[in-house]
Design a protein around this nucleic acid. Structure first.
Lengths: 251, 251
DNA sequence: CGTCTCATTGATCCGCCTCAATAGCTGTGG
DNA sequence: CCACAGCTATTGAGGCGGATCAATGAGACG
């Protein structure tokens, strides 16, 4: 029943260790309330070192943006995915004791951890939850596959346009696409890490889109899409179809 | 209880429709035997059109290589992942009725389908199976993340070297890495589709590696790794760690 | 023997990376 | 209040990696 608060260790820099505890008991419906216990708060910019038993857990994002990333020796970084509030993160690799990604908080946020055993039990006992989890898993796969397609095969403009459409959908899924305006808590460097571009080229490409009247940008990634249709076209995306493919609650 | 054989339709070209049936009953231990019923044989080069109820199923690869891919309107193709014998494919998108990838047989093979409900029940009843499934899922994530890192951030040489190391591990997981020799049923075009390169550049890069004594190639992708250490170095990989991360049975 | 697919190699071009300099913004300390 | 440092965005210049186009081989197959 032990579950540590957010514990900092005077380590390299802004790094939090997480120690998941034992099984939860008592839960009600809805992911939010299922994960209402054992919440740990994450300060902006902190990196979660998940290893050993901590990999045998599932993490629910209650607030904030997380980046799941990997890096090469040379320091080249690639963001594998973002986790937004409501998402579930399972960082375990095949051996169950090594994380396959690094988790980093892009904003202040809150995370709830649950031992995988508990999660397994809960999903096993509640079909509706199991289905929701499956849908979320499928959505994540679809999302990553869409981006892999564009990172592997698309030019800079398509990669960025796609990323923006994806953000727009994930942030305001119910938006009709008319006045799509949102904030992404990312530097251009991080955006580049997401789509496989240098920050310089991200800047140039976004500027060009702005110049072409597709979007407007204000201080630090406040983005307003002026021409959603053109953006979707650049992204090579049918927005409604994409919504169905990558949003668990859609349809 | 109906389950159609491999049904061809004189359509566009080499395309098979699959109709998964109802729940399986009676199974023993081991994935192979769990999926012993409702097997359908796939001829080389055929494309599975999975949609509607067919998405509410899980597919077990009994034999052959499958490619899961996506394409842009322009015809640009990206292979999201390969499925090898023993792997489980779940093509469903978030809505549950649209596939997020296209499945294509790269060799003659055999596939077994199981309605997702049955799979859910089975995993729910057998913890060992549930754990195995989770490990396989984690392995797949780790594998795709590793490649996304390299497609997004690595040069051609690294992408290809990584792909070869991955193949080597997946094909002969128990190999000590000494005499790594294997066949991949891929054209250079398909290899390029896997790592985001043109077939021409795949050819050039492989030739260069061969010239440098890293590997030997014989007719149509019979590959023999002469210098595994250098290959791993090019790939930016610790082979043993990678094995642990992407192979379910390892450790 | 002709056709088809795939591998190979050359030549050319351009998209994106890298390096570099500047500017704006934020926070900090004197 | 200003000076300064640190971070991010922006813009320019130059170079290279990989795409594209094109031509030739080389098997496989009917």
């Amino acid at each position: 029943m032990v579950f540590a608060e957010n514990q900092y260790q005077e380590g390299t820099r802004d790094t939090a260790w997480v120690f998941p505890g034992t099984a939860l008991d008592g839960f009600s419906s809805g992911l939010e309330s299922l994960f209402s216990q054992h919440v740990l708060r994450l300060p902006n910019n902190c990196t979660l070192l998940i290893e050993g038993d901590e990999c045998r857990a599932v993490y629910y994002v209650r607030a904030g943006w997380l980046a799941l990333s990997k890096a090469l020796e040379g320091g080249q970084n690639q963001i594998i995915d973002f986790a937004l509030p409501g998402d579930i993160v399972d960082p375990s690799g095949a051996d169950g004791v090594t994380a396959s990604v690094t988790v980093e908080a892009l904003t202040d946020g809150a995370l709830a951890a649950m031992p995988y055993r508990s999660w397994e039990t809960m999903t096993g006992e509640r079909p509706a939850l199991h289905h929701l989890a499956h849908r979320m898993e499928s959505a994540m796969h679809a999302r990553r596959a869409e981006r892999m397609l564009r990172v592997g095969r698309g030019a800079a403009e398509m990669r960025l346009a796609y990323a923006l459409v994806e953000f727009c959908i994930r942030i305001s899924p119910d938006s009709d696409g008319r006045n799509c305006e949102f904030h992404i808590p990312l530097t251009q460097q991080q955006l580049g890490d997401y789509v496989g571009l240098s920050s310089v080229h991200v800047c140039r490409t976004l500027r060009r889109m702005a110049r072409n009247g597709i979007l407007e940008m204000r201080d630090h990634m406040d983005i307003r899409v002026l021409d959603p249709r053109s953006l979707a076209c650049l992204a090579g995306v049918d927005v409604e179809a994409l919504k169905r493919a990558i949003m668990p609650q859609g349809a």
